[in-house]
Simulated assay, not measured.
Amino acid sequence: MSAASGTSVPGRLPGPSPAAPLSPWAGADPYDAALRAGHGPLFLRRADGWLLPLEVERWCARADVVDRDVLDRCEGTVLDVGCGPGRLVAELAARGRPVLGIDVSEAAVEHTVRLGGHALRRSVFEPLPGEGRWDTVLLMDGNVGIGGDPHALLRRIARLLRPGGLLIAETAPVDVDERVRVRITDARAAAGSPFPWARLGTRALLRHARGWERAGQWTAGGRRFAALRSRGSRSAASSADPPKRTAVISSQRPRNTSAGSPVADR
């Protein structure tokens, strides 16, 4: 759903509430430009020159096998926070699942809608449709870092979920727990004001997730994930841990951590 459409998401969710001011990402021209082009280079850049590569090409592609495995674990209605160009929203919509993506980028919302998904240009900290009734919330592609305050983000997600609802988060491929201030850059120029961001490995996320129940941990394709369940009644069978499959964190190192590891600015 585009921000202007006003139509409701399939299923039982209401239409959007009035939009509030957006975060610094909304004015990050290199980010919108990269999404419209479908490729980078694009980075988060810290004041000391530290760069974190962003996987624009993967985000703009269709959902891959690792993504689809995550989506198989989703329950009921799904909210994709920081949906980017919408590959996950589009995949769930194609399966006939009620799903909404939110992103502060106009280009991201437009791309998601073109793929056949529903999306709003909105920050997770702004009023959202269906608050307290979502069955699953997704924080993929580093979006556990939104706002730079893991405790505040987890509290907000808990308010969006129904009691016993499921959060599936993609964590950093290395064991890290840090708060930084960054800008968006295409390696030529940074855009906008610095904004807070966080990088969390699985252990760090679990440390911050006080009051949540652990529902699974796994590694696939060099990417790491954790599932948490909000306080409340647990569903009889959690799709975060599919039948005949144990969701455990792998002890082996990711095969490719280049997209999750900072590189020096030379």
Rank of each mutant, 00 (worst) to 15 (best):
L154D: 04
L139T: 02
P18L: 08
G148Y: 00
P24T: 01
V144Q: 07
A152K: 10
P196I: 08
A93C: 10
W59V: 13
V174G: 11
R253E: 15
E170W: 01
D69P: 05
H208A: 13
A26Y: 09
V263I: 13
W134S: 03
A209E: 13
P150M: 06
G82N: 10
R122E: 09
W218G: 07
R133K: 09
D241R: 15
E178Y: 12
Q252R: 15
L138W: 06
R114I: 07
V78K: 02
A107L: 14
L167R: 00
D141Y: 02
R155T: 15
R95M: 08
D135G: 01
W50D: 14
R231H: 13
G86H: 01
Q217G: 04
R214N: 11
L167A: 05
Q252S: 15
G38L: 04
A227E: 07
A33S: 12
L154K: 07
R234Y: 06
V248Q: 14
L128Y: 05
F195A: 00
T77Y: 04
R155K: 14
E213D: 15
G142M: 03
F125M: 13
A33H: 02
E106C: 12
A3D: 13
V89T: 11
V104C: 14
L79S: 13
V176S: 00
E131P: 09
S2W: 02
L166G: 08
W134P: 01
T112Q: 00
A37E: 02
R159H: 08
R223P: 00
T171F: 00
S23G: 05
R156G: 03
T112C: 01
P196F: 06
A119G: 01
W197R: 09
S230C: 05
A90L: 10
D103L: 08
G164P: 11
V176C: 00
F43A: 15
A259Q: 13
L52R: 15
R114M: 04
L115K: 12
R199A: 07
G101R: 01
G84C: 01
D80F: 11
V81S: 07
R155E: 14
T7V: 11
F195R: 02
R114W: 04
W212T: 10
V56Q: 05
V182H: 10
R62A: 14
L115G: 13
L92W: 05
L154F: 09
G145H: 00
L22Q: 02
S105A: 06
M140D: 01
G165A: 08
E57T: 06
A191K: 08
G15Y: 00
P150S: 05
P262L: 13
P14S: 05
A187S: 13
W134N: 04
R181G: 04
P127K: 11
A220K: 11
R266T: 12
I249G: 15
A152T: 12
D29P: 08
S238Q: 12
G84P: 00
R245T: 15
L52H: 15
C74I: 07
P14V: 00
G96A: 09
S2P: 01
P30Y: 06
R87Y: 01
S238K: 11
W212R: 07
L92M: 04
A26T: 13
A259L: 14
R223L: 01
G86E: 03
R179W: 03
V182K: 09
G101L: 05
R159I: 02
A191L: 05
A209K: 14
I146C: 07
S239C: 11
I157D: 03
L44N: 10
A264W: 10
A190E: 14
G49E: 11
R62D: 12
E57V: 04
